[in-house]
Nucleic acid binder design. Structure first.
Lengths: 266, 266
DNA sequence: TGGATTGTCTGGTATATACCAGAAGAGAGC
DNA sequence: GCTCTCTTCTGGTATATACCAGACAATCCA
């Protein structure tokens, strides 16, 4: 705009300058986790730009993972990332608890459905067989972490839905049904959250997240649980250990949920 | 859950309607990979909306992973995801080649630098020791996949930078220096690409991608290579295998590159 | 032929304005 | 103490307009 602004004019775009200005108090800790960021209108006024420009700057902070937006309540400083070691076949719940992290599980829905083509293949059941499907929201420290949807065979674990699903299901299944989780085939990808998922986590829609899909197998190698988690991308950090002799994953492709992928690999 | 793909009908936002309209030809294969999508102005005119609305719709397709934007050339249909098994300690290069995928490696920069506090700790060398640092761009099928930056001890692998860095460095190091990669500590997170990274991949800035950080250790367990890859999020799919008895990762925190994370875990 | 120029695509940035809808707090009335 | 409404905050959507800069092809000129 009108040339002579004489403030830190490194020919950066205005919006980039604002991003930098907003970033500082977050990075140096002046603004603590979950502190409210200035509103779009406030930023616009303070920096003398239009609201759309202020908005873009705040959105840039979101894609950097420094901030998140909670519906129409405002934007806030992101909490620290949660580290999750996917190589160990302990459930995330148990993992978190041993790390002293309080974890809250909210059951959203639990239903019985017939297995479709995809699910029946992954879980090695006949198409049409009854499956339990339940969706749960995981929160820690008062904020949403991820939404998980799990599918298990109803015939193999009868009455599972009557149990308290506010706990680790791998532990639950081990205790009540004697099936122990031995290995898991994991798949991680970035994708957009659906409106439903974003809403469950109290977030604005059309944001990207990290999907972690896991097929859990018993000691005989038979799959008995499919779980799909969609994590808030700015909060997740997955760690793993690789080894030369692993020869781990059979590379039969298992389709991802709603992501397009019409042709099989190779 | 189940079907229930929410409101197909009642007064979606204009922009959501446009997203749906644009999505169809991509999902059903009418538009092949890398085909050009209509421009912002075209979409705006065809749907009778302002350009900003058309823009938002096209950007939504990007965050869904269905499209990508290449600088000021236009937007295009995303290629299929590339699957990478992180549990096996084979280099991605070798992995890709055995899968019959042509992989092109472009050396961007190769320098010698002194180890700073972070690098010296991760690589178990003294602070100030000489490190080789090189950045490479990985492409497949004519499009960028990820940008990698690797750090290795210059004392341990003298003259490495004189070798042809257009190949797998783990294979190179094994052949020329007799050091074999035995295990790797891996860390995956979502983060925004830097302007440089986006530019190297020919992408518009301020997009999120997947960072894969790997500390490679020799058979004695000593770390000898740190690699950080930033993947195009819509193209990456990481697979892994988990096992009960893994007890894999020592959970000493290793700091991520530029992501804020001021306090150590616990 | 070969190199420079021009015009026209593209997205990127920025303006200003308007109305909608959810969230939240202040009070009013019970 | 308790609802209930009203006002004001927030972001979400949408308009219309303008200029900038990179990409690119066609054209012009030496």
């Amino acid at each position: 705009m009108t040339g002579a602004s004489s403030h830190t004019d490194h020919s950066q775009s205005r919006f980039q300058q604002i991003v930098d200005a907003l970033r500082h108090p977050i990075v140096d800790g002046t603004l603590p986790e979950k502190a409210a960021l200035p509103s779009e209108r406030t930023v616009a006024e303070q920096h003398g730009v239009s609201r759309m420009t202020a908005r873009r700057a705040l959105e840039a902070l979101e894609t950097e993972g420094l901030a998140y937006s909670e519906g129409r309540r405002g934007r806030f400083v992101s909490p620290r990332r949660v580290r999750y070691n996917i190589s160990e076949m302990v459930s995330f719940v148990a993992d978190a608890q041993t790390a002293g992290r309080e974890l809250e599980i909210v059951l959203i829905e639990a239903v019985t459905i017939p297995a479709d083509a995809v699910l029946s293949r992954i879980l090695a059941v006949a198409e049409g067989d009854a499956l339990y499907a339940y969706q749960r929201l995981f929160r820690t420290g008062g904020h949403a972490l991820f939404v998980e949807t799990e599918y298990v065979s109803a015939n193999r674990f009868p009455g599972l839905l009557q149990c308290d699903l506010g706990q680790s299901t791998t532990q639950l299944i081990e205790r009540d049904f004697g099936t122990v989780a031995a290995t898991g085939d994991i798949s991680i990808r970035m994708r957009a959250m659906s409106d439903d998922e974003a809403h469950l986590m109290g977030l604005a829609p059309n944001r990207a997240g990290l999907e972690l899909e896991q097929v859990i197998r018993d000691s005989a190698g038979a799959p008995f649980c499919l779980g799909r988690q969609i994590w808030r991308g700015e909060l997740a950090e997955f760690t793993a250990r690789a080894m030369v002799n692993a020869r781990a994953l059979d590379d039969q492709p298992h389709r991802s949920g709603k992501n397009r992928d019409p042709v099989p690999e190779d």
